[in-house]
Write a protein that binds this DNA or RNA. Structure first.
Lengths: 340, 340
DNA sequence: AATTTTTACTTAAACGTTTAAGCATTTTAT
DNA sequence: ATAAAATGCTTAAACGTTTAAGTAAAAATT
């Protein structure tokens, strides 16, 4: 059980002041005019005693923890864990550490997490916000804590956000279905008022208009976050048995996997009976008998950019609000079935 | 931009000492014999000024951060992100927060992470260790920092560990293949000396013996962590084209998905041409045309238990080394194909 | 009435850093 | 030879808590 070594221990050991040691170990020997040989002695002692700076103490003094709080809906969702990985790497590169929490799409849980993280003095937040949490974000901003939203965002642009071009990507996906001759295209989407979802729905409608298909409300299956499985089973089920549609567009990968289960149950053949496309990636899509066409968001870009923006904010560089839009691309595979 | 409120601010505001305020807000008014009305005044002031304790300062004073460092191979791997979620929840319940890092199976990266976390004074570690990192773990123990290993472990039992019954589970899986009439059963496993992998291999061999099949080294495909895709493609490929086996057992879900891709390329039909079983779950297994039989580890139990053990260690309760073995169960589906 | 006990607070040190300011020496400039 | 500047350190305060020890006044005991 080795003792913790502090600056004081080194100072004692050498018979000098704590300040002297601190200056040297922080590379401020020049400014502080520490003698060359003394500096060397200090460095050697630090090495020999195996000194490790206590970052808690440093944080108390500096007011900075070099910690970023990451809040997502569910870290076990591959979408979020993938992005968490990118954020972790980028943060580490910049000398930051990430603490994370899952909100389960619940505004109270999110508020809880924010408070816990605030008490721990995170320097900034990266949040994929739950529904109805604008005030939470605003409140953080009022406190002067940098926040960057990822993936999801609110209507008005008063906070930094990094997201995909949801409208265009959704429109492109649905257009692909139209181009492939589908006329009765449904969409399964969360009933969320969050802007990313609004835009995916809007993109869907726009593509229908463009294809002269007209939007039919009964083909837009609304799903509540809290009853995801049930809503998909029942809502989509109604359109499948008997089969009233010839294509489905899923607004997220979790909706798609739930939907695929239901489709399999109904015994439908993809893409013959039904064409489909999903927003977001999922390894499972590769192994479906008709590999699923999907919209690939650049998690890499989103994660990296989010960290960069938030660190710039911490450092006070960057003034204007950031609204970084990342291109998503359609990966076309069998499931969207051109009936050639 | 609201000012940060400290105990001192409240004390000033009421014209009392900081200590008084601290006692009250920590519920120590009885021991400290603070007057009832004064206590009330303090609480009210705290509420009105919106006081939030600075946990950094508290940590410096107490030497405890109520933070657990979680190190896994890759947080974006569904196995680890699922367990991370469980750990997060359980930790939160006990008043802890989790900071995480991915080692990428690399001992130096793992050492890096440990050092970063140590400097930040995490109270304990939960680690799924990379190969060749015994000394790192031993060193933590010498420092008196609690560590619990999950999933992976070393030969000698000198550190707390929570893991599945790898040997038995693997044996059970392979036995299932034997029972279903398979005679030429291969295994794809990491060439890792880590004990969990050793045991999975040993379980495979034991089942072969028990089935009087005999172990053939060329059917045990070794995969290096650093060249996973290549090794699976080439190593397994050799056995598939031309087809020399009638079943494969994959030692992890990542190996299985890589293997499935190769199997699809070879145009083999599951389970007719080849039966298969994987260790670990993966959503993709559900969507394979022949749903994949797999060994389901109880991530829930592993995660919860790990947190509990580690928190007990922090609190000094629990003295004997913990070696918690969690039952894994075989989920039988089409891919292991009884040729009925 | 004098002593002890209890009550209701305050003082002060400590946790491990950082950093402005201070103070002898020594060196350089005049 | 003296003043000014440079060198090489130290002192001390601060960050926001916690908590042992101290103190003065009021209440209880003798």
């Amino acid at each position: 059980m080795e003792k913790k070594v502090s600056l004081k221990d080194i100072a004692h050991h050498l018979g000098v002041s704590v300040a002297l040691v601190s200056y040297v170990l922080n590379g401020k020997e020049k400014q502080a005019r520490v003698g060359a040989e003394m500096a060397e002695k200090v460095r050697r002692a630090a090495r020999e005693l195996n000194y490790r700076p206590n970052l808690v103490a440093r944080s108390l003094q500096s007011g900075k923890t070099r910690t970023i709080g990451l809040i997502v809906a569910d870290i076990s969702n591959p979408f979020f864990s993938s992005i968490a990985r990118i954020i972790e790497d980028q943060a580490k590169k910049l000398g930051y550490v990430v603490i994370f929490g899952s909100s389960d799409e619940n505004d109270e849980k999110q508020q809880d997490l924010i408070e816990v993280f605030l008490n721990r003095k995170v320097d900034a937040f990266i949040i994929s916000p739950a529904v109805n949490t604008e005030k939470q974000i605003i409140s953080l901003q009022k406190m002067g804590i940098p926040v960057v939203l990822i993936d999801r965002y609110f209507k008005e642009q008063w906070v930094d956000v990094v997201h995909s071009n949801n409208h265009a990507a959704a429109e492109q996906a649905v257009s692909q279905l139209v181009r492939n001759g589908r006329k009765k295209i449904a969409m399964v989407a969360y009933d969320s008022p969050l802007q990313h979802m609004e835009e995916r729905r809007a993109g869907y409608k726009a593509a229908l208009e463009a294809g002269n298909l007209g939007f039919r409300p009964e083909w837009l299956v609304p799903v509540a976050y809290t009853r995801m499985d049930r809503d998909v089973r029942e809502g989509l089920g109604k359109l499948l048995e008997p089969l009233q549609i010839d294509a489905v567009f899923f607004a997220t990968n979790s909706l798609a996997t739930a939907g695929l289960r239901r489709i399999n149950e109904a015994g439908l053949k993809i893409p013959q009976d039904l064409a489909l496309i999903s927003f977001d990636e999922n390894e499972a899509f590769d192994f479906f008998y008709a590999p699923v066409t999907y919209i690939s968001q650049s998690l890499d870009t989103i994660g990296k950019e989010a960290v960069e923006v938030v660190v710039d904010r911490i450092n006070g560089s960057r003034k204007a609000p950031v609204n970084k839009i990342v291109e998503a691309k359609l990966v076309v595979r069998e499931s969207c079935g051109s009936r050639k």
